[in-house]
């Protein structure tokens, strides 16, 4: 805990308050200017992160939940085959998969090229470099992190409870609404965390599928760190980002806390 958690965080906090540059070295000077500068310069990128990461999480949930539900309740003895089929693409490196999407979605690529030459789409139609591409890419990249916990929670629901609900006059929809969904909330909770956290912090999708206008804060941090070699500013940005996530998590936990559901 001390070695792998507190120590790196302390280092990050200290770095974020240093000043200087790469040539002459960095000194610890309580330089809070890193924070105000970071915030003033990049508030838009913070917003992008929340916006794209958040919508990607919602999209992933809306696709993964029905898929997980179908596999858990209606796939019969072939459950694991379907699960494998869904997860198989994710055995390939996500950079390659994202590059594949870039190829598919490119302005005159395999998908839009023919449609444009047939005049089914206006010539200036594009998906790449738009928020839609970034959001879709994020949702796709982190899809398994949503599907698996949701599936696990649905799969372990006692089928006897479904019959009990039917016995007590609940129609199919009401069985879902009153029994299956409430019991799957822990899985949804876990899925949203596992998808949402990496999605807001991701910088590869917006790099490959996005454009100048869709930069997210993860990308900014990476640039400051690797390209501009401004460690203090990068650290300050990262620290704010981390605190923001933490605050969101606490609120999220308060609202959708799972203790109530887990008891049983």
């Amino acid at each position: 805990m001390l070695l792998f958690f507190l120590l790196p965080i302390a280092t990050l906090a200290i770095t974020s308050l240093e000043s200087g540059d790469f040539i002459s070295g960095f000194d610890f000077t309580w330089n809070f200017g890193n924070y105000s500068r970071g915030f003033n310069l990049y508030s838009e990128q913070y917003l992008h992160a929340v916006e794209y990461g958040g919508s990607a999480t919602i999209v992933a949930l809306l696709v993964a939940y029905p898929a997980a539900y179908w596999i858990a309740f209606h796939a019969g003895p072939r459950k694991s085959s379907y699960l494998l089929a869904v997860l198989l693409p994710f055995f390939v490196s996500f950079v390659i998969r994202t590059l594949a999407w870039e190829t598919i979605l490119s302005d005159n690529g395999v998908l839009f090229g023919p449609l444009k030459s047939l005049n089914l789409l206006p010539n200036d139609f594009r998906v790449l470099a738009t928020p839609v591409a970034v959001t879709g890419g994020l949702a796709y990249t982190f899809f398994p992190f949503m599907l698996l916990p949701v599936y696990a929670s649905l799969e372990k629901i006692d089928r006897g409870l479904v019959e009990a609900a039917q016995d007590l006059f609940a129609s199919k929809f009401e069985v879902f609404r009153r029994v299956i969904f409430p019991l799957s909330v822990p899985g949804v909770f876990a899925g949203v965390l596992l998808t949402g956290i990496p999605a807001v912090a991701d910088y590869v999708n917006q790099d490959l599928l996005g454009g100048v206008g869709t930069t997210m804060v993860g990308r900014v941090i990476e640039t400051q760190f690797e390209v501009n070699i401004n460690y203090p500013l990068a650290a300050a940005l990262a620290f704010v980002f981390m605190l923001g996530l933490l605050a969101t998590l606490i609120i999220y936990q308060r609202i959708f806390g799972t203790e109530q559901i887990m008891g049983g």
Binding site: A164, D167, V179, P182, L183
Partner: peptide, 11 residues
């Protein structure tokens, strides 16, 4: 029905 495993809703 009273089921063998009772089927009480845990939530």
């Amino acid at each position: 029905t009273v089921f063998q495993s009772y089927g009480l809703f845990p939530h």
